[in-house]
Each structure stands twice: as structure tokens, then as C-alpha cells.
Amino acid sequence: MDFLQPTTWAEALEAKAAHPDAVAVAGGTDVMVGINFGHLRPSLLMDLTRVEDLQEWSIEDGAVRLGAGVSYARVIAELGTQLPGLAMASRTIGSPQIRNRGTVGGNLATASPAGDAHPALLAADAQVEVASVRGSRRIPVPDFYTGVKRNAMDADELITAVLVVPPSGPQQYSKIGTRNAMVISVAAFGLALHPDRRAVGTGIGSAAPTPRRAPAAEQFLADELTGTGLWESRAELPAATAGRFGELVADAASPIDDVRGSARYRLHALSVMACRALTWAWADYRTDTGKEV
């Protein structure tokens, strides 16, 4: 197994163009496990931790531009306000050691349906910026996941950054695991209220071949909030609305039975999590009267 350590982004893209089968490694929290278990035997590993540009985040055209190599620990410490949903998701990930090493870029590259960042990125309408020697392009996150552990990147492409517009309303994130920490997701749900656009964003994890949104639930809730004037009144949300929203989120999922949980449980858990997440987000929205929308 050969090992490359580019120090600039141009060098990394050149190398990836020359060796499309090279596996990029950032924190190594997925790749090294795969190698240790013998599931992954790449001929070439490319370490991206020396590429400084990837390790930074910035504000660009009003959006957070999150370098692919920024760790979950830094998302939690530095981006709690700008990316609240992603920060909440990051808190559920692994142990402190894993959060220090693991990166959002790595989560996207692996594109596991159980990846913890995905529901938050889906709910927040994130875009993934990928690049190759041919140039760069932006892929809306829902189009990024193409199958179980497959993504929309070409063989010569690498993930540069994730772009997320800071929220105009509350965000929530919940995840089911069968222990209280350091656990892989049995089902996860991300929610973002976008009062500026009178829209709702959702993300479902571990309950379909890919992370996915729940469009019918989003539409239902946005229509309800608009139709009843709740966006403006910030009045109490009817319990039935939250309940129906939960059902519609579950309807959008197509989980399987596996060693971590049954499909029926996953559907049930999604509806409960979605209902609760909406209740909490709405409570935040009601008290967050400082912000005019």
C-alpha cells in the first residue's frame, strides 16, 4: 500500500487525477477501521491532513464555507451559532477522540446512510463543493448521496468544502442509539425551520439506502405554518400538527431490519423524534422574538 501526503490542494488534485483509485484519508475514523478489518485494501492512500486550506472555515457570500478537513470538535467549539444543527449532530458522534479526528468531509465521502452529519446538512440545504484538475462544482446535498456508501463524485474528484447558509430559524437534531454515547445511529433526524423563506428542512438518517429528506413532511408543515399564520403569530403549535409532521417524516423513510434495530422500530422512532424536534424548535422560535422575519 503506497502513501501520498500532498501539502497543497493543487498537488492533491493532481495526485487524484493521476491515481483515481487513491483513497483519501482525513481523520481516518472510517478508512482506518476499514483497513484494519480487511474490508478496504486500497493500493494508494492519500493523506489530506497536510493541506491547510481544507482545515479552515470562513464566511463567503453570506454562507459558511466549511473546509472538508474541519473536525467535529471544531464544529462544536466554533460553529455552534452558525451551524446549530450540524453542531448538535457533531455532539452525538463517537468519543472525544473520534470528534477530534473525524471530519464532515470524511462523513460525506463515506456517504454511509448512518453518517451523523447528513440529516443536519440535508435540513440546512447544504451544498458540497467538489474539485478536480478539471475544475470545481457544487452539488446540492440531496443529490450528493447516490446509493449505499456511494456519492456523486467522479473518480478524480475530492471534496473541498461544505457550504451552508446560516440559519434564519431554529434547528434540531436527534439520534437513536442503543446506548447513551459512542453509538452508531439506529435512526436520526435533522430539522431546520427557515422562517425567512417560510420553508422547512428535514433530514433522515439510517432509515433508507441513503440519507434523505422528507419532502411531504416539509411541505405539510410549511403549508400549515403559513396557512394558520403561525410564522407571524408565533402562537402555540397544535399538538396534532407536530404529530402529523412526525407521521409524514416516518412515511418518507424506507428502513430495513438489521442487527441494530428493526424497521418498524426505526419508523416509530423517526415519528417520535420528528414530533419532539419540531416541538423543541417551535418553542425556540416562539421565544426568539428578537429576530424579525
Binding site: 436527534s174 437513536i176 442509539g177 419532539r276
Partner: peptide, 16 residues
């Protein structure tokens, strides 16, 4: 959250 079932995975704030 660390005192709640589900821990930091944020599944309940006391509901249920």
C-alpha cells in the same frame, strides 16, 4: 442531556 435516556443524542427533554 447527559442525565436523559438517549444522552447527548438529544432524543428527549423529559417527554415520555
Amino acid at each position: 442531556l447527559r442525565d436523559m435516556p438517549g444522552g447527548v443524542s438529544n432524543t428527549t427533554h423529559g417527554e415520555g
